[in-house]
Amino acid sequence: MSNDRRTDDKTCCCDPVRRSLLQLGAVATAAALLPGKARADDEDDPRRMERPQVGDFLVYAGGDQEGALIIEGALNVGDEPVLAWATDPSRKILRDGTRLNQILVVRLDPSTMDAETKSHAAAGFLAYSAICTHMQCTVTGWIPEKQILHCPCHQSEYDPRHDAKVVGGPAPRPLAALPLRMVDGKLQVAGEFIGKVGMNKQTM
């Protein structure tokens, strides 16, 4: 499959310092550990499988802050992204029934975003599907110098300032974008995923 968004050597990663995402226990001082269950009583509740819904909040998917709401002060501009799940407004349903629901949250300078990307952002926060569109690995890498998301499996790279377009590697298309809004200092889902989550199904 061709990748019409492949770029030249200048934008491909040649010698970056890559970091894993903040979900691995990094500090999130402004995160709020709110009362209430982050997981449904019924592990088989089909709502856990649903993609993030409008009105859902976002919580940390792992690390020291696992289960805590992601709030406005959680990240500084340019910090490493964090992995997140969506949770319904009552916080009884955590939509972690499938890894396809994993979300990347990153905070960037809005002035560096293109108009389309900026329309999905809230206070500089952006959310994308964490599932690589190549082979569905979790996109856990971050190249801080270039502010590029990086998939460690096959080196696909995405630019979060431009709707997560592909800037390197074999991924055929951008990560799906998840529109955000800020409600009372908390990140909330403002729309369904734009674009398909994960890879195209192979057809025969």
């Binding site: 396809l100 082979m135 569905q136 690995c137």
Partner: peptide, 11 residues
């Protein structure tokens, strides 16, 4: 054709 899971990741 084996039906692979929707959420499978393949290194």
């Amino acid at each position: 054709k084996h039906t692979l899971p929707e959420d499978l990741f393949q290194l």
